[in-house]
Each structure stands twice: as structure tokens, then as C-alpha cells.
Design a protein around this nucleic acid. Structure first.
Lengths: 339, 339
DNA sequence: TTGAAAGCGCTAACAA
DNA sequence: TTGTTAGCGCTTTCAA
């Protein structure tokens, strides 16, 4: 019927057994590299396998063994649209790299947001041994809760409290923001403002919190804050509002590079020199960061490591090991000319 | 053992049958939407399913039905590194979109090039109903031949003759190059050169062929050709060699935008105006094409359609329909200022 | 319309 | 070390 188009039915383990003159169990052992099979028998079986061009049926194997050797990496469709997202590709690369040393096969699932049940059923239907969920979104309602049915490691801190008992890997946004702010302070700046990101996303919240901690710890004014939406234009607008306050400002920590670019443009348009009058530190180390004028000092996130860490943790989780609920990936400050 | 960490065993179809007081066959029919089940029975079963929170085990279903409802999209690891590749993301999006209307689940497989057997066995092991293979590479040795065992649609013309009896979707490079060249001709240019791409890749070969056809058809000199490697610097170098020939040149068709950017830079550095002295048409419509000076006239490839077409064809192939071995996706010329 | 029963191809006790 | 024998959870004839 549906597969008319295609070739002859694949040889089964049973056929190999017949060809080799042994039992199916023995063939299974050879295929799975069991140590307790004579060298001769192994050779005979391997011969038969080669002759028949046998490839084990993984579906049958899964059903019997209750393992699949497959790990799913789930990307919400909206994220995949933002595929060009500079954060995403390296994460996938990290996952793929970490998994290539194991027997797991990687499955990148583009989760249709219009038909979430499809993905849910796929995950719960025994197709995978575990899942990795990455997203920038604040919450992923669809996957929250699945953690109790399937080993799952989330990438990015879920804002949703329900998810707090799940495993996640995240960049240490608070600490990174402190690093950035403290760098500004170490430059002797005493009027350090911040342009924060959306306050419904962990990245927005945490980076603001980090800035606040540092500024307060230095005994300075922690009211110089404006909120943007991570877009370049919102960065310019926030900078404008900051300036409009009429208070002195000699440094700004901006929650992402896009907004930092906007802020710098506005500062320069208003006649301020960067970093002369106002020093600026961004966040993300986007590809364009080094080409800005002046080149942007910013926080770099090791995205490949991020992906690799997620994968390693999941493998351990599947193996039944204890892993920390929360793993923070360190970042580093990239010093360029803007601060 | 390995899944100690995780929750209770999922309910089986058998448990649903018991709960609903019917046979397993009936439950199976309800789950699969068979028309010949009474409305009452259907209701009772659905109730039981809801109560038990039952999700069918797809592995078991696959084993019994010999279908998986999964389609794999295979990306060689090297391509995934080039994830940022502007061609790739939209193709994936197109595939995902086309599949979201169907019952198929998409599986993006990052194929480890160091362990090709892993992917091969996965595909042949009954995990998927069909596969899509995309790559820029000239040949994909690993998948050639699999087409006889599994429905496969390739993206991009395989250069390898073995693959000629497989199904593939490609951009009509020859025709696109003709369109570009004829545009130059229609502008009244009579000394139309070309900077071709690598001649070990279909895109390089076919775009050169298209240019040649058009130039010859117009009865003009088809010797004004230099080869680059698709990089910007190679474009500049090729342009320089073209100029060094000392023959008149008033237009150039360049096999991709990167090289076109290089060629334009060189032309301007040598005092030629573009398009005044030399008109230039590129290929790819890269994001930067519109920001060049002058904005680049180029060929746009509809990558989303490309992916969607691949997916639709595969679905039909799996369904046993006849599909063309070769499907060409049309492109369009984007007129900007360089020609 | 519903049920009984026989597998799908493999793994994993348990015996031998 | 090897073979025997139950299943894994579901679909699918075939009968009823």
C-alpha cells in the first residue's frame, strides 16, 4: 500500500538467526555487544548480518527495551522563526556536539504552537528518552509539568513558579549584570544608570536586579532606571527619558546590545561622547557589537557550552543520577571601547 | 533503574479498555477515529481515556502498523554550523509549516558526520516514514542509495550521478542565471562578463551555464568568465582578472551576492561607476544586498517555498503517489540600483 | 458494530 | 555460553 514505492522488506533478526544457525537471543547479544558470546559465534553472526545487510529495527527494540536512545531538543515554532537568533544556533551546536560522544540521537522538534498536543503526544508516546526545551519565552506552559513524566532539562529560567521543581540551565544574569555594573564603577563612574529589558522575561528582571545590587552595594542612587523592550529603538527612547530627568549620568548598563546600540546613537546625537561623557556596557555580545562606534563593551554568553551543559545534564538525569535543579553558566565581560 | 527518577507508568490501551468495559480493539478504533463505532461507545471510551489521562504509545503503534508519522529533516552537521546560513532557516520554516497541516511530526536530525552510521541506522531502523535531506554540498554520499529503502526527497541537485534516480527539489539555477543575464542584455549592455562560483557545486556550474546560454543566444562573446569560490574576496580578485584582460566590459553577472559585493568594491576602487560604467547583478538576495552602495540587483530564492515543496512532495511520495523526480522552484529578479 | 486472537521485531529473564 | 519463552503496547484480520 503506502510503501509500494519502496524496496523489499528489511531482514529481521530472526532471519539473521536462521542464516547464522543460532538463536535470536544470540543475534541480539551480538548486535548489542554482549561480552558473553564466543568469538567464533560472534564472527558467524556478524557474517550473516553483513550478508543480509541487516539493520536492527529500533522501534521494536524500543518497545521491548523501553529505551529509545533518542533525545529531543524542542524549539517552539516562534523561536525557530527567529532561527537567525544568534543565541540559538550555537546552543544547538553545543547539544549536538555533546551528544555525538554518546549513543543518543538528537531530534530537533519544531513544536507547532497551533497544535501543541502533537508535540506533547510525541514526547509522552515513548518516542524519546528525554527532552531539552529551549526558549526565550517567559514560560512554556505546554511543557511545564511534563517534567514529572519524562526527564526534561529546560534552557533558560522559567518564570513560572510551577516549573521551579524542574531542572534548568541558565546564564547567571544577575551575576553578569553585577559584573558589568561593577566594571563601570571601577572606572570611577558614580552616576550609573540602567536601561532594563522587558520585565516579563527572566533576562529583563534579573539583569535589572544585578545592576541594582551593585549600585546599592556601592552606596549610590538606584533610581536611574528605565525599561525598554530589547529593541534598538526602545533603547534610544529609554536613553532619552533618562537624559530628560536632568540628573547627572556618566555610565549606563544596558540589558542587551540592541538597546545599547540605540542608546549610543541617541547619546551621540545629543552631543555626548561615548565613553568620554557616558560609558556604556551592553549584554549579549551580538555579532554587530564589535562593529559599533565605539566598539561595544558587553557581556558574552557561552552559548555552545550552554547547549552542551544541557545535554550532559539530561544524559545524567536519564541515567538516574542526581543533578542540580539549577545550573548557572558563567559569562564573561568583553572589554572594548565603549566602557 | 534508569527511570527511577520519573513518575508512574503510563496507562495502556488495555487499561482504558478495562475502565471502559470494552475490548482493546474498540479502544484502538476510537483512538484512531474509526467511523464504525457507536456514538455511545465512543463517548464511554473517551471518558475512560480522559479519566486515565491516556496517551497512546507511539512506539507500539509503529511496530504494529509499520507507520511512524514522523518525517526526518536531515542536516549535515557542517551545515548546522552554518546555521546562520540565510538559506537554511527559511527552508526549515517552510517544511515545518507544510507539515503542520498534516499528522506528521517533524524531526530535525543533526547528522553527525563523524558517525554517519548513527544516522543511517536511525533512518533505516523504522523510526521515520520518510526523510528530507538538505545540504549545500555537492554530494551526500551517506544518503545516496537510501532512496531505495526509504522515501527521500533531496534539496538541491545532487551532483553525483548515482543520485539521478532519486527525487529532488532545486532552484532553477540555469534559468535564474539566464534571467539575470538577459536583464543585463535588455539594458543594452553588450559586453556581459560573469564571475562564476565553484565548479564542483551545482550552483556554480549551473549559474555559469545559464549565463553562457544567454550570451551565446545573443550572439555575443562568451569568454568573459572568471571563477571565484563564492567568497567576497574571491569576487574582487575575479573582477580584477576580468579587468586585466583589457577587453571592454559593461556588465557582470556574479554567481552570488558575496562575490558581487567584492566585485563592486573593486570596480569602484578602480574608478568605474556602478551601474554607470559596469552594471552588476548578483544572486541570493542576501540580507546585506539592499544595503550595498549601490543597492544590489539580484536573484531572490523563495526558500520557504523550497522547504514547503520538499515536504509536500515527500508526503505524496509516502502516500504512494507518483511525483516528479525533479522539481524546480522558480526565482525572481529583484531590481535595485546596481543594474 | 464489536470482540478474539495473532502478530509487529526485539529484549530479557530464566533455564539448560 | 546459548537457547527458550514471555512479553513490550498496539493494530488488524477474521468471526461473531
Amino acid at each position: 500500500m503506502s510503501t509500494d514505492t519502496n524496496a523489499t522488506r528489511s531482514p529481521t533478526l530472526e532471519m539473521v538467526a536462521a542464516e547464522a544457525g543460532v538463536s535470536r537471543a544470540t543475534v541480539s547479544r551480538v548486535v548489542n555487544g554482549s561480552p558473553k558470546v564466543t568469538a567464533e559465534v560472534t564472527a558467524v553472526v556478524n557474517d550473516a548480518i553483513a550478508r543480509l545487510n541487516y539493520v536492527p529495527n529500533r522501534v521494536a527494540r524500543s518497545l521491548a527495551s523501553r529505551r529509545t536512545d533518542v533525545i529531543a531538543l524542542i524549539v517552539p515554532e516562534s523561536t525557530s522563526t527567529v532561527f537567525a537568533d544568534p543565541f540559538f544556533a550555537p546552543v544547538v551546536r553545543g547539544v549536538a556536539r555533546a551528544l555525538s560522544d554518546t549513543d543518543y540521537t538528537l531530534n530537533l522538534l519544531i513544536a507547532s504552537e497551533t497544535r501543541p498536543q502533537k508535540t506533547r503526544r510525541y514526547l509522552l508516546g515513548g518516542n524519546v528518552d528525554g527532552a531539552l526545551v529551549v526558549s526565550h519565552h517567559a514560560e512554556d506552559h505546554s511543557y511545564v509539568g511534563l517534567g514529572s513524566k519524562l526527564p526534561i532539562v529546560f534552557g533558560g529560567r522559567p518564570i513560572n513558579p510551577e516549573t521551579f521543581d524542574s531542572y534548568f540551565v541558565d546564564v547567571d544574569n544577575v551575576h553578569s549584570a553585577r559584573t558589568a555594573t561593577e566594571h563601570l564603577l571601577s572606572l570611577g563612574r558614580r552616576h550609573v544608570a540602567t536601561i532594563a529589558g522587558r520585565q516579563d522575561m527572566p533576562a529583563g528582571i534579573d539583569r535589572l536586579a544585578g545592576w541594582r545590587e551593585s549600585v546599592r552595594a556601592a552606596g549610590l542612587d538606584a533610581s536611574l532606571t528605565e525599561i525598554g523592550d530589547f529593541s534598538q529603538s526602545s533603547g534610544a527612547e529609554a536613553m532619552e527619558r533618562l537624559l530628560a530627568r536632568g540628573e547627572p549620568i556618566d555610565a549606563v548598563f544596558v540589558a542587551n546590545d540592541q538597546m545599547a546600540a540605540g542608546a549610543i546613537q541617541l547619546l551621540q546625537a545629543r552631543g555626548f561622547s561615548v565613553p568620554g561623557d557616558v560609558a556604556v556596557v551592553g549584554y549579549d555580545d551580538d555579532t554587530f557589537a564589535s562593529t559599533l562606534t565605539p566598539p561595544l563593551t558587553t557581556i558574552h554568553q557561552p552559548s555552545v557550552d550552554f547547549g552542551a551543559t544541557m545535554a550532559e545534564l539530561l544524559v545524567r538525569l536519564i541515567a538516574g543520577e542526581e543533578i542540580p535543579r539549577r545550573t548557572l553558566i558563567p559569562t564573561r565581560l568583553i572589554l572594548r571601547a565603549s566602557a
